[in-house]
Simulated assay, not measured.
Amino acid sequence: MHTMWKGTISFGLVNIPVKLHSATENKDVRLRQLHKECQSPIKYEKTCPVCDREIESDEIVKAYEYAKNKFVVLTEEEIEELQEENTDKSVEIMDFVQLEEIDPIYFEKSYYLSPNEGGSKAYALLRSALEDTGKIGVAKMVIRSKEQLAAIRVYKNTLVVETIHYPDEVRNVQDVPNVPEEAAPVQKELDTAKMLIDQLTAEFDPEKYQDEYRLALLNLIEDKKNQDQTTTAKERAVPNNVTNLMDALEASLDRAKKAKPAPAEKKKTTTTVKKTTVTAKKTTAPKKAVPKKKQTKKNA
């Protein structure tokens, strides 16, 4: 059995080294969601609706939403500092009470306690003391960085820790809607109800109860497996380097064609304009006065 943590139970001056083990397990049949078309598992990604992109783990921070869309951001350093203050793995029994005094609504989760090295004698002592007095210990402990209220009791020769909700974690029963007011029932109906309860009264045997839906679902799954009514998810196509290279070359060629220079006719027009401009400049050159003076001297 997996050990969750190692610590000590203390009551008075007695310290018992113990190990904590989960006493229960969730046996719900978990169904995956597949894409109906290709029978592949649906992938859930962490995305930001504002940035419209997938977010990496190092981009995520923790915050408390104190009002709609209003948050108080907490740094990892601040959280770790608080956790370090509550990492003492000791179970301090504060009071001893009768189990019947605690309403079942307060119970949350069960854990087995086993003695750690050198703790067997003190473990057996506490177990015997609880059995003889018929009481349980109310203690405080830290599990997974959360401070828990807990009850320590004996279950089939083993010490068990039952984590208990704090009073402010149990919702006010006055807030439950549509609860009828107390009214005197019809005596005949009440007597009949009591007779029915008497007929159905039995000694509690947990082995006689089972999750009918879970068993039926498991049987259905097994039948489908035996009848070969199964499916295999398609693996994601692995890109081929050669194909990628050809795609890249073809895309580059298409891009080059689109970015090809203007047709030759436009170039000729531009050249003609330039030549015309040059010719015009050469034509206007003889109008200068210098050639006239040279001609006068020659006639003389």
Rank of each mutant, 00 (worst) to 15 (best):
H2W: 05
W5L: 12
K6I: 10
S10N: 10
L13V: 14
V14S: 07
V14N: 06
I16W: 00
I16C: 01
P17N: 04
L20F: 15
N26Q: 07
N26I: 07
D28G: 03
R32M: 09
Q33M: 14
K36C: 04
E37L: 12
I42D: 03
Y44M: 04
E45N: 08
E45S: 09
K46V: 14
V50F: 06
V50N: 04
I60K: 06
Y64I: 14
Y64M: 10
Y66L: 03
Y66S: 05
A67W: 07
K68S: 05
N69M: 11
F71I: 05
V72L: 11
V72S: 06
V72Y: 07
L74E: 09
E77R: 07
I79E: 01
I79R: 00
E80L: 07
E81N: 13
K89E: 13
V97D: 08
I102Y: 03
P104Y: 04
Y112G: 02
N116W: 11
G118V: 06
G118Q: 07
G119S: 10
G119M: 06
K121E: 14
K121D: 08
A122K: 07
S128H: 14
G134W: 00
K135F: 06
G137C: 07
G137R: 01
A139W: 01
S145R: 03
E147L: 10
V154I: 15
V154N: 07
K156T: 10
L159H: 00
V161G: 00
E162M: 08
H165L: 15
E169M: 08
V173P: 01
N178M: 02
P180W: 09
E189S: 14
E189A: 15
D191M: 12
K194P: 01
I197A: 08
D198M: 12
D198K: 13
L200D: 07
T201K: 10
T201A: 05
T201V: 03
F204V: 10
D205Q: 13
E207N: 14
D211N: 15
Y213A: 05
R214F: 08
N219K: 15
L220K: 15
K224R: 15
N226D: 12
N226I: 10
T230R: 15
A233Q: 02
E235M: 06
A237F: 09
N241H: 11
D247N: 13
D247T: 13
A248I: 04
S252R: 15
L253P: 00
R255I: 03
A256S: 04
A256R: 09
K258H: 14
A259C: 01
A262S: 06
P263C: 03
P263V: 08
A264C: 01
T269C: 00
K274S: 07
K281C: 01
K281V: 11
T284M: 05
K287R: 10
K288T: 09
K293S: 13
T296R: 09
T296H: 02
K297V: 15
K297C: 04
N299T: 12
